[in-house]
Design a protein around this nucleic acid. Structure first.
Lengths: 364, 364
DNA sequence: TTGTAAGCGTTATCAT
DNA sequence: ATGATAACGCTTACAA
């Protein structure tokens, strides 16, 4: 493969000069630059990032560890990260952890071995110990969508608590008095924040919290279905279910329909996250949508600022608001449309309570 | 960061010995190995793949270029590739080309710069010129889902022609006589193969082929919607539409419903590709499902065999069969289930004609 | 079985 | 503005 030396010879200069041209150094004679650029073009020279990285100690690459690359929420986050990174000349490795801490550990070690300049991660567990590999090496890190305990690190989050509260308030406003929640693992902040929002809505409405209506499992369709089945099989079936993410919602839909029940006539359903292009095909589903793409952008920008030595001194916790999309469905006929409400922006713990969401009272 | 020299010092051996231990070389004294392994553990040493790659001239990484990372078909392919690659100790960079040849070109150059050992690509254009960067450098390459013209390279494909034929035969068997197809760009083999299958089904049934019912655009929801709208707006509206992939199908659904029509009562719809977890929510949609995960696995395995110096001498063209999932829907009530038929396996042009699919005659 | 020496392709540093 | 030199961290080739 062509090297910088081949180019240098062809252009009649030293390798260092070629390097300068490649790196847009200012102190190069325009004529020399032209010669070199011609040689580069003629030889189709593409520099080895491997050699470059070894010498410069920067790879200009980021690692992005996601729990489920088949979930459009995560792929949308990934696009935000990639687009932003690319703007700054950074490449992104996307790694699929499958919510599996072992797999995550392997990928983290890989990221370190690859000498990624920084890591973006939706940790599969909120214990900071899992990120030790990064912490003890001082690898710049940003968590996405999830907080961790025990390491105050940059984080970009959706407003899980607020979104959950709004969804449950919506159900309450519709008259539901027996509402269940099916959430993710208790070891992820996102799952627990959504349960917290659920509780808050009930308490604020002066309703009792029945722990039997709070179920936890994986953020996966299979788990959602199993939990919903057991919930529906038990006596005193809830009139509404809040699914803590889109994958769970899909499973819940299965479970409800499999039991011969209808949505929302027999069991109402609200969910966190949307279903991308397919969203209009769920006319019955009111959802709290996170700004996935923007979350990816924000996380990448934060990380890149750190790498550039800029950025806030204190670790930043950026919380982006969710959009509540209220969908109506009287029967089962597919119908598009719905109303959109924006929840207020929240940054760094400056929670805005109440909001117009509390005033929701849309007919279903 | 800890280097091999630190480990060597700590273990009281030379760096080469550490290298031997890391690489599981056989000629290392068990006691020495133990010492070294302990030093590695104590220091938490993770070797630099950057330095390793520079010296060994192998990065143990593959580049995977996909047109749309938010489409579950592609993410499923990606998982197949990753799982297989990981088994062999290879990392995978996933790159999102967005069906944009310029973006693809940049990613190819990046892949070469990164010195990826091999490239898996669903080319956004069937002209081999776009892959020149790879070809002229002898980078081992496998195309996925799409063929290219002008470079006989390894390829792993779904049976687009057969799947399309089966879908259209299904519509014909149901009595449809005016069937439209909305396909992808004419410059992708997949789009054209599906149009070919469509034509074949019509011709075999002795039906006329009306070029006005053949529309082409992007493999995207927006394109599908626009094309379907213009199709439905024209006089002599088709009674059925064949959408050449899942993204197009979503747009078509939009267009049909927006026109106040129902599916399938007013306009029937069949599509290539499924919708992953959400598939059961499309009770009206008969689809030809490609074995996406297996396609990814097969492509990765083929590439890795090449890298290992094994594999067939001639470029291989592996064509995997599609599953036809026939879904029924008399009304608009959500209903799960359906029938599954397997199309015969096809490898390397050994097309199996006819098959039991021709005998399809399921009521809708 | 272990070690020494050299080099992979680039860039940092210093010199001119 | 340009070049000479060394070094990044590892593995290959060869020697002991």
């Amino acid at each position: 493969m062509t090297t910088i030396i081949d180019v240098a010879r062809r252009a009649g200069v030293s390798p260092v000069t070629v390097s300068r041209v490649m790196n847009r150094a200012p102190n190069v004679n325009p004529e020399t630059r032209a010669k070199v650029e011609q040689a580069i073009a003629e030889l189709g020279y593409l520099p080895s990032t491997v050699a470059r990285s070894l010498r410069s100690k920067r790879t200009r690459s980021l690692a992005l560890l996601l729990p489920d690359i088949t979930n459009t929420f995560w792929t949308t986050v990934a696009r935000g990260v990639e687009d932003t990174a690319q703007t700054f000349g950074y490449a992104v490795f996307v790694c699929n952890t499958d919510e599996d801490c072992q797999k995550q550990q392997r990928y983290l070690e890989l990221a370190v071995s690859q000498r990624a300049d920084g890591v973006l991660i939706a940790p599969c567990h909120n214990d900071a110990a899992a990120l030790r590999v990064l912490r003890e090496r001082g690898v710049p890190t940003v968590t996405v969508d999830r907080r961790i305990e025990g390491w105050d690190v940059d984080a970009v989050l959706g407003d899980s608590t607020g979104g959950a509260r709004a969804l449950v308030q919506h159900l309450i406003a519709l008259g539901h008095r027996r509402i269940a929640v099916i959430s993710g693992p208790a070891t992820t902040s996102t799952a627990e924040d959504r349960v917290t929002g659920y509780r808050e809505a009930l308490v604020q409405a002066g309703m009792p919290v029945d722990d039997n209506l709070i179920r936890r499992g994986q953020f996966k369709a299979g788990a959602g279905e199993a939990l919903a089945r057991s919930l529906l099989a038990a006596g005193n079936c809830p009139s509404a279910i809040f699914a803590a993410n889109n994958a769970i919602a899909l499973g819940v839909i299965d479970a409800i329909l499999a039991g011969g029940r209808r949505i929302p006539q027999d069991v109402a359903l609200v969910a966190f996250d949307d279903f991308a292009d397919a969203s209009h095909l769920f006319p019955f589903l009111t959802v709290a949508v996170q700004p996935a793409y923007e979350m990816g952008c924000a996380a990448a920008r934060l990380l890149l600022e750190r790498l550039a030595g800029a950025g806030p001194v204190q670790p930043a916790h950026i919380v982006l608001p969710c959009r509540l999309i209220v969908r109506h469905s009287c029967g089962s006929r597919l119908r598009t449309g719905g109303e959109t409400l924006s929840l207020p922006l929240m940054v760094e713990g400056s929670k805005v309570e109440g909001s117009k969401v509390a005033g929701l009272n849309v007919d279903a």
